[in-house]
């Protein structure tokens, strides 16, 4: 039982860190704000949640579980809001889109 729980927990944590890795790679490799927003928000949310779930499994029914749930809630809320805020302000500031072949001047309005 304990071993199985550990394995599941470890697997979840590994998945979480994998997503973190992917997200960070994306953040570094993507060419502009909007595309970078994509890996960073999504992968981070997913990665963090996976890790939290892993830890929840690891801790079992305990006081820590409550804390983890609260953390997860806040994480989901804040991460999404951040992504929204960054994307929106980038849009409002007319930050250009990225185009292939170095054509980096988009129409800027996103519409």
């Amino acid at each position: 039982m304990s071993a199985a729980r550990d394995i599941v927990a470890g697997a979840l944590c590994c998945i979480g860190t994998f997503f973190f890795l992917v997200g960070t790679t994306g953040l570094l490799r993507m060419p502009d704000v909007f595309t970078r927003l994509h890996p960073s928000t999504k992968c981070d949310t997913l990665g963090a949640c996976s890790v939290i779930v892993g830890m929840a499994v690891y801790s079992g029914w305990s006081w820590e579980l409550c804390k983890l749930v609260v953390i997860a809630c806040f994480l989901l809320l804040s991460s999404a809001t951040c992504g929204h805020a960054i994307g929106r302000s980038a849009l409002r500031r007319n930050i250009p889109y990225w185009r292939r072949q170095g054509k980096e001047t988009g129409d800027g309005n996103g519409a």
Binding site: R88, S89, R93
Partner: peptide, 9 residues
């Protein structure tokens, strides 16, 4: 601020 924040935020 150049970007008025949205209701969500």
């Amino acid at each position: 601020s150049p970007v008025p924040s949205s209701t969500i935020v």
